[in-house]
Design a protein around this nucleic acid. Structure first.
Lengths: 341, 341
DNA sequence: ATAATAATTGTAATCGATTACATTTCATTC
DNA sequence: GAATGAAATGTAATCGATTACAATTATTAT
């Protein structure tokens, strides 16, 4: 049989109010009473019903996070860091897999709202701004992660995507590469748009004219990275090096290169956005742009929880945190002798 | 202002009971009434409060999953498959990171219980049997994943760990290896114990006497895999090949081998438990035991949800599902000429 | 010992839904 | 048009906690 606070109160000989005060560690309960009630609680094996508490308190001590793709190493690090941080502050995390699908995202936003989570961390697909605004207006705290959302007023934690991409491509150019391809995600994610911008900036700066046939876009997943890389490297006008825009696309690209029996860096140079252990033990070790993934998640959580707990904060003030990326040079590019410059 | 069912009822001119019937899609509401109420709902932007519903119905439509280590690719696939499956049946997932720490595990079990999840999927550390039994007795459905728990009566979904490990080591033996090391997790996880058993079985069958200095154990994480592999390969009596017992240990081992400047398979042969894209594009491609990870998660979820929804089921009948592993031969071992037999 | 004050404890409303049971409305039959 | 039964709707208790406010008990001052 399920034990509730009333059972405890009766057995201990006090009212539910007093039991509740003991549970919540309120002052103003005689030590002797407290002990007696605590005893009864453990005798009866009583476990508080958080659902009832949540209803009454209008607070759930839980936050939701909707990630783009749980399968991605990127997001599993995010999940870990959000979990760690939330945990530190006594919050639970409800992890949802948006799967890069706006409909799934909307559905989860609704579910989370309905479950009255105290706040939501979201890597937006870019399509549900209206609902997200509604969420924010109706009091749910939201922090955007990894991607910006135009026209939505809320805290955001990002990486310097354009600069990161610029650094990657700049590195290739410095090594003498001129025909540089990019395998990118869609531009409706700001990560896609910004990384393309960085790529173009680097080309422009070097006086290299943009060649649309070297720019490939699809979703941010592995299979797509593989497909687009093959297209790119099979076309007559093929690049000497490629820049791949996220970890999953990068894995796909490396698979494609392997399947095509091409050698890195002899046949094709590559720089990937996002690091991983595997990147460093790969043969050859892959030059990457490293993002501070763990910090992305922890900063977002900290921001969110701060906003949740600080009731009187001014919702119109929105933080935008931009974290720096770093170029890690390894051995996936080579020096070309036509390094004219 | 937050809209509740009473607001809707008043505005629409009906009682909360009727509104609730519409919400729950009950029969016995006039079509005209239903429409009117649905209209009011969307006019007011009403969103049901799941917390209140959960309290009254004593059902949350959510399941908890406690994994060993979210950072591990293994568990991120598990998370994905549990999420997919739960989603299919209309359940939400609360993901918790047990971090291979019994205390964290116990804490999360308590939190999940307190939040009245309908069921829990757990990869047990092996230390909280008492509480888990209590959970089961008090009506929470539990399914164990990946690891067995002695003395606890509940559904379990596993992989044929001993056979898998046997196949791995057997493969090494067939190629002529005789000094075979193992980098394993702790034996209190049954995965650790079973994989060791498989290793020993293969040795015994081949008439190779066990050498304790070739058996290394620690936790199931990457850093440990790296450390133990170094120990193993630095000792005077070092193995010609190693078997690594899970994906994270394997990554650690590969890092160690790289750092020690050893060549696979010339200097050291290796077979890893658990596959990954990276394993196949690694140089050389790594021979692995592949587990059906996605199915592990989906089968566990199916079992759990079936148990949740089928109230009158006999709790004393417990399913144990054992999935098969598969040896994928790639190029991380070689034929030794001293293949005496 | 009594009044005044402080410290404990209790009563009952509340959070927002669901649902057993009661009541009203409608349709059908004679 | 009344009686009957079916269909639709409403009333109020309930889930299990929290908490404002009231009531009681203990302590201190006079």
């Amino acid at each position: 049989m399920k034990i509730n606070i009333k059972n405890v109160a009766e057995k201990a000989g006090f009212s539910t109010a007093t039991v509740s005060r003991v549970l919540r560690n309120y002052p103003g309960v005689r030590e002797q009473t407290r002990k007696k009630i605590l005893n009864t609680i453990s005798e009866l094996n009583y476990e508080i019903n958080a659902v009832a508490r949540n209803l009454r308190q209008k607070k759930t001590y839980s936050i939701g996070i909707i990630v783009g793709n749980v399968l991605s190493q990127f997001y599993s690090v995010i999940a870990k860091s959000v979990e760690d941080t939330a945990n530190k502050y006594g919050y639970n995390v409800i992890l949802c897999n948006g799967d890069e699908d706006p409909e799934k995202e909307l559905n989860y936003l609704r579910v989370l709202k309905s479950n009255r989570v105290d706040g939501i961390i979201l890597t937006p697909t870019g399509k549900n701004s209206t609902y997200i605004k509604h969420l924010i207006n109706s009091g749910t705290r939201v922090v955007l992660l990894d991607r910006l959302l135009e026209g939505v007023n809320c805290d955001t934690v990002l990486v310097d995507n354009a600069i990161g991409a610029y650094k990657a491509v700049r590195h290739l150019i410095e090594r003498g590469y001129k025909k540089i391809g990019i395998v990118n995600g869609y531009l409706d994610r700001t990560t896609g748009a910004e990384r393309l911008r960085g790529y173009l900036n680097a080309l422009r700066e070097a006086g290299i004219t943009k060649d649309d046939s070297l720019i490939k876009m699809g979703n941010f997943k592995k299979e797509n990275g593989r497909k687009l890389t093959k297209e790119l490297l099979n076309q007559p006008n093929k690049p000497e090096a490629i820049f791949t825009a996220n970890i999953d696309i990068s894995i796909g690209a490396l698979i494609a290169i392997k399947e095509m029996n091409l050698k890195i860096p002899e046949d094709i140079g590559i720089v990937c956005f996002d690091d991983s252990d595997w990147m460093s033990i790969f043969e050859p070790p892959i030059t990457v742009i490293r993002q501070p993934v763990y910090q992305l998640g922890s900063q977002a959580s900290e921001l969110l929880i701060k906003k949740i707990e600080n009731e009187q904060n001014d919702l119109s003030i929105n933080n935008r945190i931009i974290l720096n990326t770093e170029l890690i040079i390894r051995k996936s590019t080579r020096k070309l002798n036509n390094s004219i410059k």
